[in-house]
Design a protein around this nucleic acid. Structure first.
Lengths: 296, 296
DNA sequence: CCAAAAGTGTTCTCTATACACCCATGA
DNA sequence: TCATGGGTGTATAGAGAACACTTTTGG
């Protein structure tokens, strides 16, 4: 006990309690999955859709709006452990791909008190977690996500210039909808650049979670080509078309099959399994090749 | 006042004070620059060196060891603003390139009390901040940095395998030295992978700052090709050889001049200025082209 | 047969790499 | 003059984009 006491005293030498208020630290979880949409046509391939899990707030502030699942970091766990705990509470899943994204520390981001939030991205495949959009508990739902650049403006200033870009974020789950406009400003002055993000409009989306979602989508798009994150969104066995659809849904554009197959060739291993269900040529099933990257 | 009171009460509804102790949040600054080393030979080009600013600790714990500059986040500033403030206190500089890196939240990382640290990387050019290695205040010094992968081990486990890699971090400033070995473990099981980093040995380096430095070096290497970060390490006017040396110092390998010039051609603008000082053909001076990337 | 997707081959362009070569200077 | 770095041209190999084409199924 005296050891702890002296440790705390050592700490207080450098830490002025009057000036530095200890904030609350939370983790916010960006849980993504890719699901099949019902295919209306006769034997058309079913489209896939990128989904994110949101929870309906049952308290003020933002009562009734949608928010990312999250929780506070407690004294006896690391922030990574807090993220794992929050994820398990929300989905019941363990051993899921988790990645720290960014830490949000603006002053007024929680109107109640000072909260600093560390955001984590989790990727699961929908087979493992079969909660369907629109079903399940009323307060946790998978929302279809998409974002799109809608406007770009360049302004010349005295010492440089400024580029403003607006991203439109759209989320939907059955009749529930949420949306936001996030403005990203890049200011270049005296050869130095600075990037600032702000939420212009938010509809049904709590706190600054729109920024977090835009950030996560950006990260997903950036990493999908040179990492193995796409495989976390698929079951163990999948066709190359499945994989291609995951890429297309995340990148938001169509890809050519021939080039795609060559690009992912060394990330996958062919198996003996074959999927023969639809009205067309059956497809070989592949699995992830965990050794595709010799480096870490 | 009553508004604040009810806001706090709203907050306490979701926040169990007994379970969630509010930690201290600090920012730690990874301040890099590139300096010229004295060239010993007659008209050889002077080598460049990547430097990081470290501060000698004047308190327990880690008394006398070297640490990253840092400070606690106060109640009336965002964490970005805290980073700017810490940087200005340390260097007197404002309007410097700053980038949030990662947030470190392990339980025992500060032996005194629970501290969560958000690390920021700052890049400055040494002309702006002429503190020389070995000179200046005894307690703040530029250290030469380098890291190197020294060992790699692959082990097959029951449900997958495990790759361990060791990185040797070396820091030096005159007679002062610090070093550390950071082990990175990638565990692949059931098709899922997890990466863990730990410090195996640390000599003269305080806290978990060795991990932060290794992380920052990795980030620098990854971003230098597709962003403009290299230019923040150079003065406004520079030769293409200067730029190439910055790349070489960060990537830790030599590059071919012809290919390099073509690669950076659209990131720079030719100027009328010429540098004519050494015993060889004079070189054109270039400056950063802030519009090289049409996108953000 | 036919619609649809699975899967392959070919051509073209662009980029990175390697290397050879010339240029301009100050000592 | 010559050592040294500045700067350019060219040939080659590999990756990605575009597109044409064949294969295989269920209805």
């Amino acid at each position: 006990m005296s050891e702890n006491h002296s440790a705390e005293q050592l700490f207080l030498k450098e830490y002025d309690v009057n000036q530095y208020v200890r904030p609350s630290v939370s983790v916010d979880m960006l849980l993504f999955t890719v699901t099949e949409e019902e295919s209306e046509n006769y034997r058309k391939r079913s489209d896939k859709s990128l989904k994110i899990l949101l929870i309906k707030r049952k308290e003020h502030p933002f009562l009734g709006q949608w928010a990312l699942p999250g929780g506070f970091v407690s004294a006896n766990e690391s922030i990574d452990e807090a993220a794992i705990r929050v994820l398990e509470k929300e989905t019941g899943l363990r051993d899921v791909y988790l990645e720290q994204l960014y830490t949000w520390g603006d002053i007024g981001r929680d109107p109640r008190t000072r909260v600093i939030s560390c955001s984590y991205m989790a990727l699961i495949n929908s087979d493992l977690y079969p909660l369907q959009p629109g079903e399940g508990a009323e307060d946790a739902k998978w929302f279809h996500v998409s974002d799109q650049w809608t406007q770009k403006k360049t302004t010349v200033t005295e010492n440089g210039f400024m580029i403003e870009k607006w991203a439109e974020l759209r989320l939907g789950s059955g009749t529930d909808e949420a949306s936001a406009t996030v403005k990203t400003t890049k200011i270049v002055e005296h050869g130095h650049s600075k990037v600032v993000q702000e939420i212009e409009k938010a509809h049904n989306l709590a706190f600054d979670h729109a920024k977090m979602i835009v950030y996560a989508l950006e990260r997903l798009r950036n990493k999908i080509d040179y990492t193995d994150i796409a495989f976390h969104l698929l079951p163990e066995y999948f066709t190359l078309s499945d994989l291609q659809q995951v890429f297309e849904v995340i990148l938001g554009k169509e890809l050519l099959a021939a080039a795609f197959r060559r690009k992912v060739a060394d990330k996958v291993l062919e198996t003996n399994h074959i999927r023969r269900n639809a009205g067309h040529r059956p497809s070989k099933l592949y699995r992830y090749n965990p050794q595709w990257d010799d480096e870490l």
